[in-house]
Design a protein around this nucleic acid. Sequence first.
DNA 1: TTGAAAGCGATACCAC
DNA 2: GTGGTATCGCTTTCAA
Lengths: 356, 356
Amino acid sequence: MDSRAKKATLQTVADEVGVSRTTVSNAYGRPDQLNKALRERIFEAARRLGYPGPDAAARSLRRGRAGAIGLVFTETLSYAFADPYSVGFLRGVAEVAEESGTGLLLIPMPPGTGGSETAVRDAVVDGFCLYCVPVGHPAKELIRARGLPLVTTDESDDPGIPYVGIDERASARLAGEHIARLGHRRVAVMVDHVSGPGMSGPASVEEQLATDCSDLRGRLTGYRDALEEVGVDWRSVRVVAAGRNSRSAAAAASAHFLDVADRPTAVLAIGDVLALGVLDACEQRGLAVGRDISVAGFDDVPEAERARLTTVRQPMGEKGRIAGRLILQPPEEGKTPHIELPTELVVRATTGPVPH
Amino acid sequence: MDSRAKKATLQTVADEVGVSRTTVSNAYGRPDQLNKALRERIFEAARRLGYPGPDAAARSLRRGRAGAIGLVFTETLSYAFADPYSVGFLRGVAEVAEESGTGLLLIPMPPGTGGSETAVRDAVVDGFCLYCVPVGHPAKELIRARGLPLVTTDESDDPGIPYVGIDERASARLAGEHIARLGHRRVAVMVDHVSGPGMSGPASVEEQLATDCSDLRGRLTGYRDALEEVGVDWRSVRVVAAGRNSRSAAAAASAHFLDVADRPTAVLAIGDVLALGVLDACEQRGLAVGRDISVAGFDDVPEAERARLTTVRQPMGEKGRIAGRLILQPPEEGKTPHIELPTELVVRATTGPVPH
DNA sequence: TTGAAAGCGATACCAC
DNA sequence: GTGGTATCGCTTTCAA
């Protein structure tokens, strides 16, 4: 066996077999362009020479196709994986990607970013999907500049970027109206964060509006619409930030409204993960959820059903699939789809009438 | 504003500004190599010309670095995302990737593969991590041929490939011994699948050995070790396949041992997700888990704690981090690390002594 | 079928 | 700081 050359290339193999580069290239990329025996001979030589097969970057450069979709997150990836809602969305994108033999390139873009500019620029992809990237995030301009197919989810700001999501405001209103109809007037709201991640505790109305996440703003506004309609002063609604979108953080932050004199009779959480945390906190305090206090979530993640959580269902998987397709088969130039998927209130056991 | 040329390239920009390509290249990749004013002028021209920035594929080709780790799954991605254990592992890999501004390229490789050969070959990555890719999977040779840094998890066959995982057999034995010590002799085992996915129901000893997943085999052997040590005939142990690694599938398949005359007093599940399903099934039937019947899992996923599930904890996050590092900083040639992480039996409330 | 030539778009090295 | 020059490794006409 030859000592494998430091660098085997298409040319090397071609020389070895005594054919041209084209033929070797065809052996890999177009099996039907040459007879089987020759193809085998080529592969055999490749093996002998330690030729690793066509270089992916070179091939991608030459063909102008990457075979991957870029998924940009503003949070750390570990964070994104932690929420069943995200996971549901990812599964959707993955499904359509798989169908076309396309990979998914996850690009982390945590807050204290800067170096991650590189990650976006160096991403060898055929298009980008922005997942909860807030308005005005620096990455957005960078990505857009790359001129690849692009779709945003949940964060619907830039009119020039295709969008798929839900009507956040109207959907949240569904939950708010449900609570209002049950007679609740003393209400608390649990959010993950308002101004910048990490900050936890009660948030003033100004802080609530200051957030750059349009989905969060939409949901808050939806709750507000419903509550104000029945005469609730929004300023009386305690909006509490958990600091992170996690069950335990929500459980901890629940103290801000659970351990006070004028405890609310209902809690609206802007996500199921947070709602589950509130449930935990209630349980700890021996509160009978659905009787002593009502809790509603948002998303309808798998765990929600098990917990009998009242929530607003949004089709996360479908959202992902549509986003994926929008990238793989971009719409004609000039058309900028803005797709809003239907949502639905799912009433389970965690909400009930106001206790006397 | 100029009508942006159909194709703007580094050269175009260089010509426009009146500098060389090098300078433009530096403007993007090495800001310190030219003065700020010029750099701005270049960017400005780029914007005007609609130049999308250095082409990722070209750059990757030239620099010989991809800026991404390839993660290969044998199951569909959607499947991988669904299991909290996988998610924990992914988070680990993601963590170290993030630290170095590296992306994660998810490469699906479902059973009925073929087209996905392409996905591996075209993956522009600096290394691969094989996640639960069984022995002898065709992808393995293909990936290995690419000559990039490579690491396997959980499936430890090929001696030439770096590995990180746990001692499956010894770890499973921990659970088995715990059950044996509690006096259980009539035991059932729940697995996801034995020979090929989708098949559910009881599996013969031959079928159990036929699986190509070394981790599964290891765990079964561990249970067997423990049980045979106290005189249990392994053939009397009902091994049932759920067909898929899902909670609901496990709940359904539990009927195979729950709804029979000689119901086992203990159930060992080779994963927590399955164990949770068994728990669901027991609850449905009004069985008091921990008293009427004992259930133990494996992995210690977050839900396990909430369910008070007795299980074997393995450090999934750590596993992922180590795998990631192994790819980013590959060990010296010739050294093939085989890392086994510690595990630990976590006794909670779902196991108890044999009922009289 | 096969081969020769022409890029794909960018970066590294080295003098200037 | 700057600008030539030489690749990086492959695919793709187009003719033979």
